[in-house]
């Protein structure tokens, strides 16, 4: 095997190790997140339309994104999620961030177009045992297949969406 081949395998090795660590951290941080969707979970978007994550997840994986206006880390992740919302099912949950008009104005100011549900009291987050923002859940066919908090890169989210199908 030539030198470049060896280097490629080495690089691949590093990537696998990094992915394993990220997976481990996810698992540790979100070990309380239930593996199946809470019963009778119908959310209402800011626009007033009812959303059934369970039904949506039967066709395509759903990305459920928990964020907050008071979270200085969220603006680093929100644009990525917004970009994905063009091609994937994305529902965002604004955690304890105030009333509807404020959240709508905030989304407009930040140029974020994803569908948003207002979780004024944090009740939805509690159902998923989520305390930290930003957190991304991937839901496929009624099952929560992955949960990750903190910075997430676009390829990281795409990989999780893809993996959720298996």
């Amino acid at each position: 095997m030539n030198k470049w081949g060896l280097r490629f395998i080495k690089l691949l090795g590093y990537l696998v190790v990094a992915a394993a660590i990220a997976f481990g951290v996810d698992l540790y941080r979100n070990n309380n997140v239930p593996t199946t969707l809470p019963d009778e979970l119908t959310l209402t978007s800011l626009a007033g339309e009812p959303l059934s994550i369970a039904k949506m997840s039967e066709e395509e994986p759903v990305l459920l994104y928990f964020w907050a206006t008071w979270c200085p880390v969220c603006p680093t992740v929100s644009p990525t999620v917004d970009w994905l919302s063009d091609d994937y099912n994305v529902i965002s949950v604004a955690l304890r961030s105030g009333h509807n008009t404020k959240i709508s104005a905030y989304l407009e100011q930040q140029e974020l177009g994803f569908i948003t549900v207002n979780d004024t009291q944090g009740a939805i987050a509690r159902q998923f045992n989520i305390t930290a923002t930003p957190t991304i859940l991937i839901i496929n066919n009624h099952k929560v297949t992955s949960a990750t908090s903190g910075f997430t890169s676009p390829p990281g989210i795409l990989a999780r969406l893809w993996l959720s199908k298996f």
């Binding site: 941080r29 907050a68 008071w70 979270c71 200085p72 880390v73 969220c74 955690l95 304890r96 944090g122 305390t131 930290a132 923002t133 930003p134 957190t135 908090s149 903190g150 910075f151």
Partner: peptide, 11 residues
Amino acid sequence: LSSCTNICVLT
């Protein structure tokens, strides 16, 4: 109390 590292929590 809000607190953050690379994640944020409201307690």
